[in-house]
Every structure is written in C-alpha cells, then in structure tokens.
Design a protein around this nucleic acid. Structure first.
Lengths: 264, 264
DNA sequence: CGAATTGTTGATTCCCCTCAAACTGGGTGG
DNA sequence: CCACCCAGTTTGAGGGGAATCAACAATTCG
C-alpha cells in the first residue's frame, strides 16, 4: 500500500472557509476528457467487470470531468435528471428532505462510486449531493450511456448492476436503522468505511473522517451527541482511538462483535 | 369503484392453515400465459408508460404465471437470480437477514408491483419473498427481458424505471426509519397503504391488513407492542377505527398532521 | 377441550434525545 | 500579536419514548 497516498489521506485536513451551499448553476465545464481504460479506479467504478472491448466503448464516450469545491452542491433535489456522476476523488454527501422540511443524509460516496441514479424514475433528482472536500467527478450523460448500451449487453448490464448495487446499499442502511442500537450503528458505519478505504488502497485501520458528527448522526439516525458519546465509549473499550475526525481502529474484531452485543 | 371487489378485499380473512416456510423447489409451473396488453394492471405494472408497439413485445414474451399459497416462499435470500416477479394478486412480504441472524421486513408488495430486482447486482437474491395470502405472480425471466430490451429504448427504460422506483421506495423507508417517531411511522405506513389501495380501485379509507403487528413492527423499526399501542392511540384520537386487521381511516387529514407532530 | 397464535394492555426499565455548558483549533479583525 | 468569534466536538444532567417483561383476551386448530 502506497504510504505517501495513505499519509496524504490521513493527514489532518486544514479546513479553509467552508463554502456552504454554492450551487453550480454556471457549470465550470472542464474540457479535459477521461478514459475509463486508463483510470486507476476502473476495477471499482463503472467499468467493473466489463470486457475490454466494451471499455473501449466507454472510452469513446469521453466523459467530461468536473471539479467541485468543498461545500458546493453538485446537484439538487428537484433538478432535472440528466447526468450520473462517478466520483474520481474526494467525498460526497447525499441527502434528501421530508415534506415537512426535515433533512436526512442518506449516503456518502467516495472514489469509484456512482451518484445520481435515483433520478431515473421520475427524470428528476430525488436527492442532493454536496462535496465534503474538494473533489472531482466524471459527468456521465445517462441518455448517452443507455443509447450506447443499446444493442450491447455488456454495457446494458453495467447500468443494471449500478442501480442494483444502489438498492443493496440502501438495504443495508435500512437494516441498520431498523434493528440496531447506537453502538452497533456506529460500528457498522466504521467497518463499512474501513472496508471501502481498504478497497481503494488506503489503510483500513487509520483514516480521517470527511464528515461531521452531525452528518454521521443524520445518516445513522441518531443525534450528534450520541455519535460523540459512542466514539468515546469505543475508545474507553480500547476498540479505537479517536481525536476529532482522526480515527485509528485498534480492535477490528472487537468492533465486529459490537454487532452482536444485543444478540445473546 | 367496484363494490364487489372492495368487499371481497375488505371482508374478514378467515385464515386457514398458515403454511409457513414452504419453499417452491418443485415449481408448479402453470402453463397459462398472460398478456400485458389485456391485463387490468397494465397502467400500474411493468407496461406502465410503454407504447402500444412495445407492449406487443411484452406480450410476445408470454410471461409464465405462478400461484403461491399463503406462507409459501417465492424466492429465498441466496437463491440464484433468474426471474423478477410482478404481483398479479395477493400481497407479499420481502425480508432479509443480518449476519447475526436478525431479520427485518423491508417491503410489502401488492398487485402491479415488481419484486426481485435486488438480485441483479450479484446474480443472487438479496432478500426473500413470502406470500401473505394466496397470490399469483407473473414470472419474468430477467435475461429474456433485457435481451428483448436490446435495441429497443422503450423496453430498456422500463427496466431502468423499475429499479429506480425501487430505490425511491427505499429512500422513503430510510427517511421514515431515520427521523420519525412511532406515531409518524405508523401514520406514514397507513397513508402509503391507503394511497396504493386507492390506485388499485379499492377503498382508500377501509381495508384489511394482510400483515401481522409483528411484521408491521419489523418493517417500521418498532416492536409489535408499540404498533398495537399506536393503533389504539390513533383510535382514541378518532383518527381511525381498528379491529384486529380491519382498518377504517376516519380522518386522513389528521393522520397527515401526525407527520408534523414533531415539527412545531 | 387444551394448545397455539395473534393482539391488547399494564408496569417497569433503559437507551437515547434534549438542553446546557465547556473546550478546541482556526480564522479574523482590531 | 492577541482577543474574539465561530463551528465542531465533548461531556453532563435530566426526562421521555419506546423496549422489555408479563398477563390476559380472542380466535383458530388439533
């Protein structure tokens, strides 16, 4: 595992002025194009499991690239659905609103993960996506992708798998919200994060959280205070060390057992 | 609205021998075939929003039909993914299991709704589906459907929309589990049920629940006792009348306000 | 009829929310 | 440069909502 990358990732983030809620109305379209075939994320991202001839087709689409600064909103709930977005770097938060104005975080996306698929049903985005740090995404025109997939079973499967993966992701969050207590939720969250970071070549045991306690709490269906308390409890149990957003998992096995606290 | 149908639906169910957990290993394949074009559910189901020429294509597939008795399992978590299923009649419960054995209901499906799409991602069903009453489904070979969709944008969109709709369904359940109290959850559940029944030509205000208190509780992330108590509380508030599984919604507006109890 | 299943209701416990105060590090402006 | 502010975090005290444990009624089935 590349140590330099690890350190770049786990080094403290010096958070500059947080540019909250800056919509990207005048899209800074970056003319640079990206090729899937030469992307270091190809094993995780859209081209995962696709034959090399089909990757060629993806290359032909020449996805646009877009930089998104911390705090900027990539797309908003209610925006017309046109693109899906593959994260190239950085982390995003996805959230949606209840009719009465309550808001909830319903996902965090990192490199290689695809956002925006909930817009297919009604042609309108059902959630908003905000960058939690300076980030970059591939902009994939959905209609273009499905056109491309026409008459090509490989690409067609890609789209299906992406959506189905999103369904599975939500399944596990539902299980979490429906049948776990605070400790189990946080443990599940951390283990999931750890595993995703590991798949991306980062340390599975030491990392920096890109999201606040409030965002974690919203995602896990608990208050920010309970998140903080649970972190402290885990530290006391020597399961991990926590300093603000810097996390070091000490006892992964112990964290996994935290799932089974309730199960006697 | 056809009264006879309504009464058939809202009449007390005399629950016969509940055949729990009977897998359909030897599938009783019904040779009868179904045509989408002449199906009374075509506005709700797969053919929704599809041009008549594309419906012709669906007809050509001649979906198989399968009867499922109450308590029988249509497919199990872990089964190889081959088919998706459109409910023709009856109600299904979908549930999945945590690694430690805890189980959770994650959906109820009624006529015109499509089950099984969570199997696309890994080629394996991620949840199980059980009939809550004698039921009938259309058996749709997924590979055949996507083959058919090849080179046909209308059918291709069908599959995308079905999956995206499933994502939206889970979104709303997550919001519910993440940020609502017991009263809001049950109110949301009842209003959702009411609206779906109305769309199917049944009464929006009077119906029979096909699921137990325990199943509702599992779905809504609360215990069966709390479900029962909340029903009683709603009755005391004259929002509805409840007698076991028979429900009569008196004050739909009041139930909607139950969402806003928390929001002052 | 007794056994089993489902639903209702009561008493008690406890987990987590709410409210509140204090601390931290960084950025800013005098 | 230092005082101040601010957002984010930690920690404490107290209360409430839902889980847990338990008893009982109603219905169905063997």
């Amino acid at each position: 595992m590349p140590v330099a990358v690890l350190e770049a990732f786990t080094a403290p983030v010096h958070i500059a002025l947080r540019q909250q809620d800056i919509p990207l109305t005048s899209a800074p379209v970056v003319p640079l194009r990206v090729l899937c075939s030469s992307c270091h994320l190809r094993e995780l991202c859209v081209p995962c499991g696709v034959s090399s001839s089909d990757i060629q087709r993806l290359d032909d689409m020449k996805f646009g690239r877009r930089r998104v600064k911390m705090g900027q909103i990539l797309y908003r709930e209610g925006d017309r659905f046109q693109f899906i977005y593959a994260v190239r770097s950085g982390t995003f938060r996805s959230n949606l609103m209840l009719a009465d104005g309550r808001e909830q975080v319903n996902g965090f996306y990192m490199a290689g993960e695809v956002m925006g698929l909930d817009g297919v049903a009604n042609g309108v985005h059902a959630s908003s996506a905000t960058a939690l740090e300076d980030a970059e995404v591939c902009v994939i025109p959905y209609a273009h992708l499905t056109d491309m997939a026409m008459g090509n079973s490989g690409l067609q499967q890609v789209v299906g798998r992406l959506m189905s993966r999103e369904i599975l992701r939500e399944h596990s969050l539902m299980m979490l919200l429906g049948s776990m207590n605070a400790e189990e939720r946080l443990a599940a969250f951390l283990l999931n994060l750890s595993q995703r970071l590991k798949a991306r070549g980062y340390s599975a045991s030491e990392f920096h959280l890109r999201m606040s306690r409030a965002e974690i709490g919203s995602y896990l269906g608990m208050t920010l205070e309970t998140v903080s308390r649970t972190f402290s409890a885990f530290q006391q149990l020597r399961l991990l060390e926590v300093d603000k957003r810097h996390i070091r998992l000490i006892d992964l096995e112990g964290l996994r057992r935290a799932f089974e606290v309730r199960l006697h």
